[in-house]
Design a protein around this nucleic acid. Structure first.
Length: 617
DNA sequence: CTAGGGTTAG
């Protein structure tokens, strides 16, 4: 069938703009060949829309070849070129491209390319480039264009200059969803949550976008409960939650709070909404199951990801296996990932070194650290150094760790010092520990975490007066140590135990069971470690104090409430101490049950008197 | 062909 020329043009052009070219990159090539054959290749807008289609499906080689053949470049072409450079993170080329367009091809910037330019500066937050781009827009005929202003609001927000963003925002005549969202997002991202919320409630109408911004930033800042409340509020307002972005933010909240029941409900919901093959949600669920201690479901969800697994999917699973003490599995996954052609990123290596650290694979960890830069061109960051410090410290290579913390190219933060100090504590090098603690106090007296670290070290060293001084300092500075608690799910029941508090209705049963277990444990050679208990009590009183450790209460509750033979999962626990570790191993062998304890984001699987971490924790 | 959201670590 012969189409009349105008329709013909239009059809091909809209085909190039459609997602068909992105999903089936060969289509672009066919259209290219057809245009060449029919001699209309050089007629606008084809050269530019072809170029755009190539770059959007990452066919950069074809795009470059095409670029050389174009006789009359237009602004559209430059706009696509700029967007392509922004996607590949080469910010230094933005302004040269822009200037070449003006001075070599004598083209005047239009509104499209100006917002593309501003957007490019926002992607790679660069305030210097961003301000130059802003300058270009104000001297252009589009100085009052609302779309450009929206992208400026976004650019200043992403650069962290919220006040500048607000000034541009205020100057927008007709504010639409987009600029409101960009502004709220700016406040949320820079931690100014109250301003974000104030603006949010002032919006004439709230779209899914802006709800997502707030929910995810609440999850990110650790206010999980507020995030869930906001999600409920959103449902009440009748906003359609058939949206992968908002769902994954809520799944993240469920993961961090270890709310397995909610997580499962969200999983069912997203399958019924047709997101079964959505890669982003798939990744979120793999993570959620792992963090809720259900590693089997996590792995099943991972295996079921229908699309090509991306670096995030692999990394999530590697970290998940590592968190559950299955470092060997993490390393196998890493090999499978590399051989399937997916490039690891910096997070992948955090997970891998962490896995080695968990299981004491010292040499393997060192090798992976070296391979980062050598084989993948990833510059190790402070976090990688902290992982390596942790690995060396845990395995007793204290002098190597001490050397590393001195020579590493980045300034150690609290986490790095904490890794080193806990290694000193673990391996009994109290002198080194106290020395480091002193250094730390001089270095960062302004951080509250310093005092908690110090107090622990002094306690271990038996330097009670120094410890008392640190405690006094903590009091005057208003620093509180969070009380220990454990949280367990049994069937449909959830229960939270605070350290030292035994709930009345279970008191007799739980304490009875713990006394029973203590007798059995002692028969097997357990010597209660009462060093963490107030030292002016009688010995048997100290032992009873041990019963009120929250994780012991939770496990006793689990033993009483669940069917015999089933695993007991303490889904959240503030800290697994050395004595707890011994006790859990014993209880697992006495009761013949698997006990899973989540300690921060690390899991201990106790079974047959052993722990999955191989005691390298 | 231009502007706003998300998943992995700590």
């Amino acid at each position: 069938m012969q189409l009349s020329p105008p329709v013909h043009f239009e059809k091909l052009h809209s085909l190039l703009r459609s997602t068909a070219c992105r999903r089936f990159p060969a289509v672009t090539g066919h259209i290219h060949a057809y245009l060449l054959k029919s001699g209309i290749f050089q007629s606008p807008p084809f050269p530019s829309s072809l170029f755009n289609a190539y770059t959007k499906s990452d066919l950069h080689h074809d795009a470059r070849n095409l670029f050389g053949e174009i006789t009359h470049p237009d602004v559209f072409l430059y706009s696509s070129l700029l967007a392509a450079h922004a996607r590949s993170n080469s910010p230094s080329s933005f302004l040269p491209i822009f200037r070449r367009m003006i001075s070599v091809h004598l083209l005047l910037p239009d509104d499209f390319i100006l917002s593309t330019l501003v957007n490019a500066c926002a992607r790679f937050p660069s305030i210097r480039l961003g301000r130059q781009a802003h300058a270009y827009t104000v001297v252009s005929p589009f100085y009052d264009d609302d779309v450009i202003k929206s992208s400026l609001v976004d650019m200043y927000s992403k650069c962290g200059l919220v006040n500048d963003a607000r000034m541009v925002f205020n100057s927008i005549e007709l504010k639409n969803f987009v600029c409101w969202t960009a502004m709220v997002s700016g406040y949320a991202a820079s931690g100014r949550l109250s301003e974000a919320l104030e603006l949010f409630w002032r919006m004439p109408e709230r779209s899914v976008f802006v709800w997502t911004v707030l929910i995810s930033s609440l999850v990110h800042s650790g206010s999980h409960f507020d995030a869930l409340k906001l999600f409920v509020e959103m449902l009440r307002e009748g906003i359609d939650i058939n949206d992968a972005f908002v769902l994954s933010a809520v799944v993240g909240a469920a993961a961090d709070m270890a709310l397995l029941v909610l997580g499962r409900q969200l999983h069912c919901l997203s399958i019924s909404l047709g997101y079964e093959s959505n890669i982003m949600l798939g990744n979120a669920f793999v993570d959620m199951y792992a963090k809720c201690s259900d590693i089997a479901s996590s792995r099943m969800t991972f295996d079921k990801i229908l699309m090509t697994k991306c670096v995030v999917s692999w990394t999530t699973m590697i970290v998940g296996e590592a968190q559950h003490g299955r470092a060997q599995e993490s390393l196998v996954l890493f090999n499978r990932m590399v051989s399937s052609g997916v490039r690891p990123n910096e997070v992948t290596f955090v997970g891998l070194i962490y896995a080695c650290s968990h299981m004491g694979f010292v040499q393997k960890g060192r090798e992976l650290f070296k391979s980062m830069l050598r084989d993948y061109g990833i510059e190790p960051s402070l976090q990688h150094y902290t992982c390596l410090l942790d690995l060396l410290g845990r395995s007793g290579n204290l002098s190597e760790a001490a050397n590393l913390i001195r020579v590493m190219p980045c300034e150690p933060d609290e986490a790095a010092w904490a890794a080193f100090l806990s290694a000193c504590n673990k391996h009994g090098d109290i002198k080194l520990g106290v020395h480091v603690a002193d250094e730390l106090l001089k270095l960062r007296p302004q951080f509250s975490s310093t005092y908690i670290l110090l107090s622990n070290t002094f306690a271990l060293a038996g330097m009670w007066s120094s410890m008392a001084n640190v405690r006094k300092l903590m009091d005057t500075m208003g620093i509180k140590k969070q009380a220990g608690y454990s949280w367990i799910d049994v069937g449909r029941e959830s229960c939270l135990f605070r350290a030292g508090e035994v709930p009345c209705h279970m008191r007799a049963n739980i304490l009875g069971l713990l006394k029973e277990l203590m007798k059995e444990m002692k028969k097997r050679g357990y010597v209660p470690d009462t060093s963490s208990v107030l030292h002016d009590l009688e010995e048997d009183e100290k032992e009873i104090q041990l019963f009120t450790h929250s994780e012991r209460l939770a496990v006793a509750f689990g033993l009483l409430k669940s069917a015999s033979g089933s695993a007991i999962r303490v889904v959240k626990n503030l800290r697994v101490c050395g004595d707890c570790h011994t006790v859990m191993k014993l209880i697992s062998s006495i009761s013949g049950r698997e006990i899973v304890v989540r300690d921060a984001n690390r899991f201990h699987h106790f079974e047959f008197g052993r722990c999955s971490c191989g005691d390298f924790w």
